[in-house]
Simulated scan of single mutants.
Amino acid sequence: MADLLTIDDPDDPRLSDYTNLTDVELRRRREPAEGLFIAEGEKVIRRARRAGYEMRSMLLSAKWIDVMRDVIDEVPAPVYAVSPNLAERVTGYHVHRGALASMQRRPLPAAADLLAAAPGPQESQDRTVRRVAVFEDIVDHANLGAAFRNAAALGVDAVLLSPRCADPLYRRAVKVSMGAVFQVPWTRLNSWPQDLGLLRAAGFTTAALCLSDQAITLDELAARDDERLALIFGTEGDGLTAEALMGADEHVRIPMDAGVDSLNVAAASAVAFYATRARRP
């Protein structure tokens, strides 16, 4: 059972995991280095726990103590009871969900191991990785979180991130994904786009979403129903790099009307994931 500790000093060192949560550059450097991430809100905290992440501590306003009582009773980590005003002074923003938890990160798997065999986001006896999403240099945490939620909802078995992608476990990405970052197996690639060779060696067709003249339509790609398919999405604004496009097996475009040439990367991922979802037994 966790210790429930009331704290009224915003400078209490025990609250250090929760300080300055709005400072993106600080958190980007600190959280991975210290092996922590922040889960915000009851549902996200519970999903992180169900996914097996270890809790370092929890910060709750008074009205959430009874709601989270079962978690308090289960975990050995300390629980800090604070006023809403103190929570805002510590974190730098209004914690309207009233519940934060500092969680311990886990080592990321090797990409080759993830592609060989990993559980999909859905409970299923078919544990073969057939659909993979690859994101190149997605720097917006909200976009990345939304893309992970799409992946969990639409049958993507694993996600690969280029080295410069945003952190999926940054607070905003976790929040926007509603905890889906805990459901879909993911890892960060070491060498991009050379690591496209890992996908090819594992039997994946690699399809780059782009506006090139040689692109086939998403409908054409979906009709093929490739046994193993990796969909590659580029950064906001500029799209995929020339090197990534050169390394992909196919260029694919989403047909659009009204003179619109592209979609937000998260919206595009949802369309592509749905259109190409694998037919499972």
Rank of each mutant, 00 (worst) to 15 (best):
A2C: 05
L5K: 08
T6Q: 10
I7D: 04
I7K: 00
P10S: 11
P10N: 07
D11T: 15
D12T: 08
L15H: 01
S16F: 11
D17E: 11
N20D: 13
L26T: 04
E31S: 13
A33K: 15
E34K: 12
G35T: 03
I38Y: 01
E40V: 01
G41T: 10
V44Q: 00
V44W: 02
I45D: 02
R46Y: 08
R47Y: 12
R49I: 14
R50G: 11
G52E: 11
Y53T: 11
E54R: 12
M58V: 06
W64Q: 14
I65E: 06
D66A: 14
V67M: 10
M68A: 05
R69Q: 13
V71R: 06
V71N: 06
D73A: 10
E74A: 12
V75W: 13
V75G: 03
P76I: 03
P78I: 01
N85P: 08
R89Y: 09
T91H: 09
V95G: 01
R97D: 10
A101G: 02
M103F: 12
A118R: 04
A118M: 06
A118Y: 03
G120N: 08
E123W: 12
D126A: 13
D126Y: 08
D126G: 02
R130A: 07
A133Y: 00
V134S: 00
D137K: 07
V139M: 13
D140H: 11
D140V: 05
A146L: 05
A147N: 05
A147G: 00
A153S: 06
A153P: 04
L154H: 07
V156Y: 01
V156I: 15
A158F: 12
V159Y: 04
L161C: 04
S162R: 06
R164V: 11
C165A: 15
D167T: 03
P168W: 03
Y170T: 08
R171N: 07
A173Q: 05
K175W: 02
K175S: 11
V176M: 06
S177D: 02
S177V: 06
M178Q: 14
M178S: 08
V181R: 01
Q183H: 15
V184S: 03
V184R: 05
T187S: 02
T187H: 03
S191P: 01
W192F: 15
Q194E: 12
Q194C: 04
Q194L: 07
D195E: 03
L199D: 00
L199P: 00
A201R: 14
A201P: 07
A202L: 09
G203N: 09
F204A: 05
T205A: 09
T206C: 09
A207Q: 04
A208G: 12
C210Y: 00
L211S: 06
L211G: 09
D213I: 08
A215D: 07
E220K: 14
A222K: 10
A223H: 07
D226I: 11
E227H: 11
R228V: 01
L231W: 02
L231F: 03
G234S: 11
T235P: 09
E236I: 06
E236W: 04
G237R: 14
A244Q: 12
E250C: 13
R253M: 14
R253N: 06
P255Y: 06
P255I: 12
D257L: 15
A258Y: 15
A258P: 09
G259Q: 08
L263F: 15
Y274S: 11
R279S: 14
P281L: 15
